[in-house]
């Protein structure tokens, strides 16, 4: 029994770590701008695509840092071009703009790749096979959760102990007051996008190493799931997003393997097809959370003012 479940749990924790890195981008942007950045998942996909093209043209030790820098630049530009002009517009307009950016990025990726699956380069060391607890898996599966936790700890330190971190906390608490206090909110928002896309770029490296390739729609589903993770943990809260992402990653992986697990266990004798619901389950979780605890696990309570 344990032997059948274990591989699913390990891969679930790994996927959870990757979702966590994307979810932080969502939760930070939402905390400050109250915007669901629908384009975040697509930025994640672009990071994967850039890696594919650059690994073919230059050595990896240049390609990886360059990919991260370019992805961060893309995140910065999206905020600059598509969200900043709408700062005073109703929230719905900004959300529509985010959907428009996502549409544009996907179509652009479709044009450049021709819609073909692009094989992700294998990065030495992290894509090596290793044996852990009697299971064979790639090293990235083992590294991901630790790397994620390390990055999260660094991020929390940054937010709690630096000037820009303090500014971020102030802006997320109250946009206008912090502006009056002399905080340059545009810089703070840019910094948020830069941190978010940096983590998404790192996440994309870990995520796509375990997958056969990148297609223009690769970012959509992980993006939505990461967002759900952010909502689950309480949007605006970084530890919440990370815990939510791990829970969703493990649950999703277990559901993918539920048929096999139950058959080995002897509960059922034939395939039921639970794997069809591995994506849908995330949304079931989302709806349960939204209906019973709309602020998520760690979210702060807000009251609507008239």
């Amino acid at each position: 029994m344990g032997k059948t479940i274990l591989p699913y749990i390990i891969s679930g924790i790994s996927v959870g770590g990757q979702y966590a890195l994307i979810a932080i981008g969502y939760t930070m942007v939402y905390g400050i701008l109250r915007l669901i950045n629908f384009a975040h998942g697509d930025v994640f996909m672009v990071a994967g695509l850039m890696m594919v093209y650059m690994a073919a043209a230059m050595p990896l030790y240049i390609a990886i840092p360059l990919m991260i820098v370019l992805t961060v630049l893309l995140g910065f530009l999206i905020e600059r071009v598509a969200y900043r002009p709408l700062r005073t517009a109703p929230r719905m307009s900004v959300m529509i703009s985010a959907i428009g950016v996502s549409y544009l990025i996907q179509n652009l990726a479709l044009y450049i790749t021709g819609g073909l699956n692009k094989n992700y380069p294998s990065i030495p060391w992290i894509s090596d096979r290793v044996h852990v607890l009697g299971l064979e898996t790639s090293r990235v599966t083992i590294i991901t959760p630790f790397l994620t936790l390390l990055l999260v700890v660094l991020l929390v330190l940054l937010i709690n102990h630096t000037k820009i971190g303090m500014a971020m906390r102030a802006v997320s608490l109250n946009f206008e007051t912090s502006q009056l206090m002399g905080i340059r909110i545009n810089n703070v928002i840019s910094a948020t996008f830069i941190i978010g896309t940096f983590l998404a770029a790192v996440g994309s490296m870990l995520f796509f190493t375990n997958y056969p390739g990148v297609v223009p729609t690769s970012g959509a589903m992980p993006g939505l799931k990461a967002f759900v993770a952010a909502v689950f943990g309480g949007i605006g809260s970084i530890p919440g997003a990370v815990i939510g992402a791990f829970i969703i990653g493990v649950a999703e992986s277990l559901i993918k393997g539920l048929d096999t697990i139950l058959i080995v266990n002897g509960t059922i004798t034939e395939q039921i097809g639970f794997a069809t619901f591995s994506d849908a389950f995330t949304f079931v979780l989302l709806i349960i959370v939204l209906v019973f605890k709309p602020t998520g696990l760690f979210g702060e309570k807000t009251t609507d003012k008239v």
Partner: peptide, 29 residues
């Protein structure tokens, strides 16, 4: 359940339901 939610939460919940419907319709059973 979802109409109690506001703005972006409503958006993401309805999006989620659409995905659930799609999964159910594709279910082998």
């Amino acid at each position: 359940p979802v109409l109690r939610l506001k703005s972006d939460y409503l958006a993401i919940a309805t999006l989620g339901f659409a995905e659930i419907i799609r999964a159910v319709f594709q279910w082998q059973k």
